[in-house]
């Protein structure tokens, strides 16, 4: 489901001053995705068995809800609602970078703990998206990571995955 939506922005980049008539396709994109989701959910809940009113099955409620979603999305796909629609811009590609950085962050977080990925993510965002100087970005990234680690893992006792940096340090100190 996510993959479909993720691709949506890249295909339709920078399209200036659209008139609903000629470019109605892009206003229909989201409703159509929702429509597909709704139909898939209708089928899915049908397969969960609907049961009867005096003993409703697990699928009954999702069925009702997904039918409602399908109808609403269907109406929007036929009569697209163009209001409050923002244009896609070149900077939209920046966003793909931002999302990708978070994907890497989560993967690293699970693998090697909090400290390294946190420094890297903060550094990247501060430098690339915040356009801070290298020095300030580095100071904030390291300092911020330390604050987060102490705050969450030490003081609040949130169990982070095993951390290579903290693990090494504690071993060196011999704790």
């Amino acid at each position: 489901m996510s993959a479909i939506k993720l691709e949506a922005p890249q295909g339709t980049e920078a399209d200036p001053a659209a008139t609903p008539g000629r470019h109605a396709g892009r206003y229909r994109l989201v409703p159509l995705v929702l429509l597909a989701t709704g139909i898939a959910a209708v089928i899915g809940s049908w397969r969960l068995t609907l049961g009867e009113l005096n003993s409703p099955g697990p699928g009954l409620w999702p069925f009702v809800v997904s039918v409602a979603a399908t109808i609403a999305a269907g109406i929007l796909a036929i009569v697209p609602d163009t209001e409050a629609y923002e244009k896609w811009t070149r900077r939209t590609t920046m966003l793909a970078g931002g999302v990708l950085s978070l994907v890497v962050f989560i993967l690293l977080f699970e693998a090697i703990g909090f400290v390294v990925p946190s420094v890297l993510l903060l550094l990247l965002w501060l430098r690339a998206f915040g356009e801070e100087s290298w020095r300030l970005a580095l100071v904030l990234a390291v300092g911020g990571t330390a604050v987060f680690y102490v705050g969450f893992a030490v003081l609040l006792g949130v169990p982070f995955p095993d951390d290579i940096v903290v693990g090494t340090i504690t071993r060196l100190i011999g704790m």
């Binding site: 989701t37 697990p58 809800v65 609403a72």
Partner: peptide, 30 residues
């Protein structure tokens, strides 16, 4: 926004809330 968009989003919200175990029978859904 428009009422139809709100309705659509509310329905999607309801649908998302059905993910997980059925509260009555425990069957896994979506």
């Amino acid at each position: 926004g428009s009422t139809m968009k709100s309705l659509c989003m509310a329905a999607i919200g309801l649908l998302l809330s059905t993910v997980g175990q059925d509260p009555i029978t425990g069957t896994a859904r979506f």
